[in-house]
Design a protein around this nucleic acid. Structure first.
Lengths: 73, 73
DNA sequence: AAGTCAACGGACTATAAGTGACATAGCAAA
DNA sequence: TTTGCTATGTCACTTATAGTCCGTTGACTT
């Protein structure tokens, strides 16, 4: 699984924990709904600034976001 | 400090631990030498795939890269 | 002097960001 | 059944910018 897919899955995981729809999270992060779909499905090579907005909307830190099994060696 | 600067500083910190020049790290990560300068100085909104290459060249995982004080809440 | 390293600039190409239109599926009334 | 609402997915496209490649400069070292 490539990094885009790993990031997408982690976003989906955390979004579901918050019980938000893609659209609700997209609005919170100030990105387009269809863009959020693409990101979750690993189709976007997201930049660090956009990722920052999404991570903030997920209410975690970068450290917490990447503190998941798939991001460890 | 914005996220681009934090990433740049973390890259610089880890690069120095490996005692690599910017150019040596750039070559190892297969990115442009001038791009590496910009990234370290917080002037580039880096994509996740390029960041992945740099992190790999730094011989750490994503989790380790972001396990630093500046990336925690 | 000659080499190494980091920073910076301009011009260029590749690709990410952002959006609109439409499709699909589930689910709940009427 | 059909109507309507919610949620998600996909395609095609333009605009903005990520990333490369050429070069120069200044500080420091041998």
């Amino acid at each position: 699984m490539d990094i885009k897919e790993k990031v997408g899955q982690r976003i989906r995981e955390l979004r579901r924990q918050l019980e938000l729809s893609q659209e609700a999270l997209a609005n919170k992060a100030e990105v387009d709904r269809t863009y959020m779909t693409d990101v979750e499905n690993g189709r976007r090579n997201i930049s660090i600034e956009i990722l920052e907005k999404i991570i903030a909307a997920l209410e975690v830190s970068f450290a917490e976001f990447f503190d998941a099994k798939s991001f460890k060696k």
